[in-house]
Amino acid sequence: MRDADPNAGLDRRTVLQVFVAGGSAAVLAGCGAAGPAPGASPSGAPSSSAAAGSISITDQRGKTVTFDKPVTKVVTIPMPAASLLVAVDRGADHLGAMHNASWVAMRDGIMGSMFPAALDLPHDIASQDFIANVESVRALNPDVVIQWSDAQLIEPLEKAGLKVIGLANTGKQEDVDAWVAMFAAMLGKPERATEMKAHSDQELAEIKALAAGRTSAGPSILYFNRFTGGLKAAAANTYNDFYIKLVGGTNPATGADPLPGTGMVGLDVEQVLRWDPEVILLGNFDAAMPQDIYADPVWQDVSAVRSRRVYKVPLGGYRWDPPGQESPLMWHWLTDIAFPRPESGLRAKVTDYFRFLYNHQPTGEELDKILWTAANSKSAGYQQFNAA
């Protein structure tokens, strides 16, 4: 999973154009970091309009991909793409295969119980580094393959005659908007992108208003993408850095003593001790839990450990740590972690959002699973997320 821009998503400028061509939706999504392809305008839009009745999408490489009709079989390789497709489609019928990490999130979260047939789909189509098994993908005969926009990842698929939509991930909320718009268009459901963006924009405005209304500074919050088997934290140009700052916190990994480089950067315990973060977030890319830190003598001098402010990030239809369709729920959860209150309204918000995204009303047990209420039960203030 890639992450980026520390100030991402704050201006929410529109980078998508949706238009109708002969009654079918066409999307021009020109916010790729790689720059426009030959023949494309600087915005990434194609130089000529789509043919009547077809669906034309300009991906985040600036390359235009055209379909004669809505797609019915999609292979996804970027980790967030499988669950995002399900959310846009409100079903898994058009998902043909996915990356193993996407499948693991479905198995371990509640996506697998909402859409159990998805767990039977192929999920050995690419390596951990997103390199596709081209022959396996070809054998599935998909209408389109979703892949990260790196040329070395896409070229083998295109040389095999497959249509590919390339996704960029600059760490901006605009990327999520672009992904949703492209998926909605190729599925023949452009109105779904409008609905999803409106919901996300509303939640973003609410979070910004809450942050702007505070008079006290927020805590320092350190996010671990990996904890077990070697530490990796969210540095500059990550979505995690964006939402830490969005809710009013600070990220020591991008502060006065920053980690070198961008993305998820390796570090040692001594660096964490120097930062002394007030809150630690454990991501869903390994099995580390708060109790693992609380029980380890190495971490006992860290403020977050002394005050019991170590938390496992929720896992819903997909992991809440990276960008995705449930990111607005992550913003609200982290706001309540940074600025705890006696009772959070998050359970009701998750219920409403899941109805909207998946046409599913989570049970109390499912809400507890999503929010890791058991694993986080010994952490300060987490009772606010319990059922009333």
Rank of each mutant, 00 (worst) to 15 (best):
T262V: 02
G317F: 01
F115D: 04
K232C: 03
L246R: 09
G381C: 08
S47E: 11
V75N: 02
Y311M: 08
S200W: 09
W148T: 00
A33Y: 14
G345P: 01
Q202N: 12
A50W: 00
V298Q: 07
A45S: 06
A256R: 05
S48A: 14
A184M: 11
P258G: 13
F285M: 13
W179C: 03
Y294S: 07
P252W: 00
R347Y: 13
M264P: 11
N7F: 13
P122N: 03
A101T: 03
V137C: 09
N359D: 05
L119C: 12
K349S: 05
I125V: 03
A25S: 12
T262H: 03
A87E: 11
I280V: 09
F385T: 12
R90T: 03
D124Q: 10
G112M: 11
M182C: 01
R214Q: 06
K159I: 06
P297G: 06
A205D: 00
S49N: 10
S41F: 11
V350A: 09
F356D: 11
I154F: 08
L119Q: 01
P362H: 01
L367W: 00
V176K: 01
F385C: 01
A193T: 04
G213P: 02
V145G: 11
L282D: 10
N7S: 11
L329M: 08
V310K: 01
E366R: 05
V265K: 13
N240D: 10
S379G: 09
G218A: 07
P142A: 05
T238A: 07
E366N: 02
E326C: 05
L157Q: 11
Y382S: 08
S49I: 12
W103E: 04
D108R: 13
K208E: 00
T254F: 01
D257I: 06
T335A: 12
S56H: 15
K159W: 04
W320T: 06
L329F: 05
A105D: 10
V27G: 07
P258Q: 06
I207V: 07
N225M: 15
A338G: 08
R192G: 03
L95R: 02
I280P: 04
A33N: 12
V272I: 09
